[in-house]
Simulated assay, not measured.
Amino acid sequence: MINHDEFQRLVTQLYSTVGELEQMFPGRHFTPDGHMVGSIGECLVADAYGLELMTASNKGYDAVTATGLKVEIKATQANSVAFRSEPQHTICIKILPDGTFEEIYNGPGALVWEQFKNKPLPSNGQFQISLTKLRKLNQSVAAQDRVAQASGSE
């Protein structure tokens, strides 16, 4: 079991350090990206929703619920996320500098994957979808089709 408060404090500290570095070196960006954002997002979601994380780079899903639902976690600081395959369920978040996150989408992966239907696979093997589109899709997800946050989470 992780210490939720300590985890949030460390993420907040990380983003505070990024801000200080950017003030020290105007015009330079120190935004965490790539694996770091993905790992932070996976841990934030696993903590908030009571999920069991799989090993890093597990193909097709990052965590499972107590009932065995496979969940692909997508985290970003930008305005889109990318998918390589259709997940069983997906939770997409936007990480905020204070160590919290905004839930963008929480629902069946098929609803997201449907957006790529009849589109050619991009050369990098990943379909991009905007957070705006995901927010709109999220509005159509029924409560019973969402993974509920664990009690005591944000």
Rank of each mutant, 00 (worst) to 15 (best):
K117E: 14
L134S: 13
S151M: 12
F127C: 04
P26F: 08
L134Q: 10
A63S: 14
S85K: 07
M1W: 00
Q149E: 03
Y49C: 03
N79D: 15
T90D: 08
S130Q: 09
M54K: 11
S39C: 01
A46W: 09
D33L: 06
L134M: 06
Q8S: 04
M54R: 10
R9T: 08
D145K: 05
L14Y: 11
L53C: 02
Q126Y: 11
Q13S: 04
Q126K: 07
N138Q: 07
G99P: 08
A63G: 13
T17K: 03
N79P: 03
M1P: 12
A150Y: 00
S39Y: 09
D62T: 00
E154N: 12
V71M: 01
Q115M: 15
T65E: 07
T90L: 04
I73S: 05
V18E: 02
R146A: 08
V81I: 15
N58A: 05
E154M: 11
T132N: 08
G152Y: 05
K119L: 15
D145G: 12
S130G: 05
G68W: 01
L14N: 07
A82W: 00
Q128L: 05
D33F: 02
T31K: 11
T12R: 13
A78E: 03
V71E: 01
K74I: 00
Q149V: 02
E52Y: 07
D98R: 10
P108F: 06
T55G: 11
I95D: 06
E154R: 14
H29F: 06
N3E: 03
Y49S: 00
A56K: 15
I91S: 14
R9N: 10
I40V: 14
S39D: 10
Q128N: 15
H35Q: 09
S151K: 02
T67M: 11
Y49P: 03
E22A: 08
T100M: 09
S16T: 15
Q8L: 00
F101N: 07
L21W: 02
V45A: 08
L137Y: 02
L53N: 06
E6G: 02
K119E: 15
Q77E: 14
M24W: 05
T76F: 08
T76V: 11
P120Q: 14
G34I: 10
K70R: 13
E72P: 05
G107S: 11
K70P: 09
Y61E: 06
A148H: 03
M36E: 05
D5M: 02
K59Q: 14
M1E: 14
V45L: 03
T12E: 12
G50D: 00
D98N: 15
Q144V: 11
D33A: 12
G34Y: 10
N124R: 10
P26T: 12
I95W: 00
S130N: 06
W113H: 04
Q13R: 03
K133V: 05
L111G: 09
F30C: 06
D98A: 11
I95G: 03
Q144N: 09
V18W: 11
P32H: 05
E114M: 12
S153M: 03
V37E: 07
K117L: 15
H29G: 13
L137E: 01
G38H: 06
I104T: 13
K59C: 08
Q149G: 03
Y105H: 13
K136P: 02
E154P: 09
